[in-house]
């Protein structure tokens, strides 16, 4: 089973450890993993900024890079939403390449959904003794239905999951929104941080690096150096 790993541009640039954690999990579950070296970005930043043609060009590039894979997996609900939903329902609707993108969408999975729903893993290499709280990222949750999978995996690693108030509430990241409308974004993030603090958990865990950088940035700015901010892949791979 040949699985292509779509690393995501943020992981590539900022937190390579998440990529390696994903790699370890997939290989540990018996997958043959390939990482196309030419991959850059799924195109979502352009798409959400009104640059439709750029988004299409990048989607075609991703399609070509992963054409030979049986599955494609990404440690991000947001990029997965772009490739599973935006391409099929909007960007290539009514166009000749739609069937190709439908095929890609069908074999594309967000990491936790792939591990739980496709591979049906029943053990993970990592151990985490302590309490975490999980932030549901918007695209993963509302576009793809990622909800119980990461929690299930975290519990498999021994973590206790303390639910925060409004776990499904947006953290205020929103890609370029976090810079264009920084004051609103910061307030939304502060609300999220309040919910996180109220749980008393030692770590805030999520499935999208954008949200995690946002949350970490606000926690640190407000003087919290203790709370760990982790991608679930790091926790369950034992690299947190």
């Amino acid at each position: 089973m040949k699985v292509g790993l779509f690393v995501t541009c943020l992981v590539d640039l900022s937190r390579p450890g998440i990529g390696f954690a994903a790699l370890k999990l997939l290989e540990g579950a018996g997958c043959e993993v390939v990482v196309p070296g030419s991959q850059t970005c799924c195109g979502q930043p352009g798409y959400n900024s009104g640059g439709r043609e750029v988004a299409k060009a990048l989607a075609r590039k991703v399609l070509a890079e992963f054409r030979d894979c049986d599955y494609v997996v990404a440690p991000s609900g947001s990029c997965s939403g772009q490739m599973k939903v935006a391409t099929v329902h909007d960007l290539f609707k009514g166009e000749p390449d739609l069937p190709e993108f439908e095929k890609l969408a069908a074999k594309w999975h967000e990491l936790s959904q792939f591990l739980v729903d496709v591979l049906k893993v029943d053990k993970v290499p990592g151990r985490f003794d302590g309490t975490v709280t999980y932030h549901d990222s918007c695209s993963g949750l509302r576009e793809l239905g990622v909800k119980m999978q990461p929690r299930y995996l975290l519990q498999m690693a021994g973590a206790k999951v303390a639910e925060m108030d409004g776990a499904e509430r947006c953290c205020g990241f929103g890609g370029t929104f976090s810079i264009k409308l920084g004051d609103i974004s910061t307030r939304m993030c502060e609300n999220k941080c309040e919910s996180i603090r109220a749980t008393g958990a030692g770590a805030i865990v999520g499935g999208d690096l954008g949200c995690l950088l946002n949350i970490e940035g606000r926690l640190r700015r407000t003087g919290d150096r203790e709370t760990k901010v982790l991608h679930f892949a790091q926790v369950i791979a034992g690299e947190g």
């Binding site: 590539d12 990529g19 990482v35 810079i179």
Partner: peptide, 24 residues
Amino acid sequence: GIDGWTKGRDMPAPQGRTFRELYK
């Protein structure tokens, strides 16, 4: 350039090398 972000938040910095470099 990203002061909209850094006004109210720190930007967690990259860690020096990209995933693809390390992977290669």
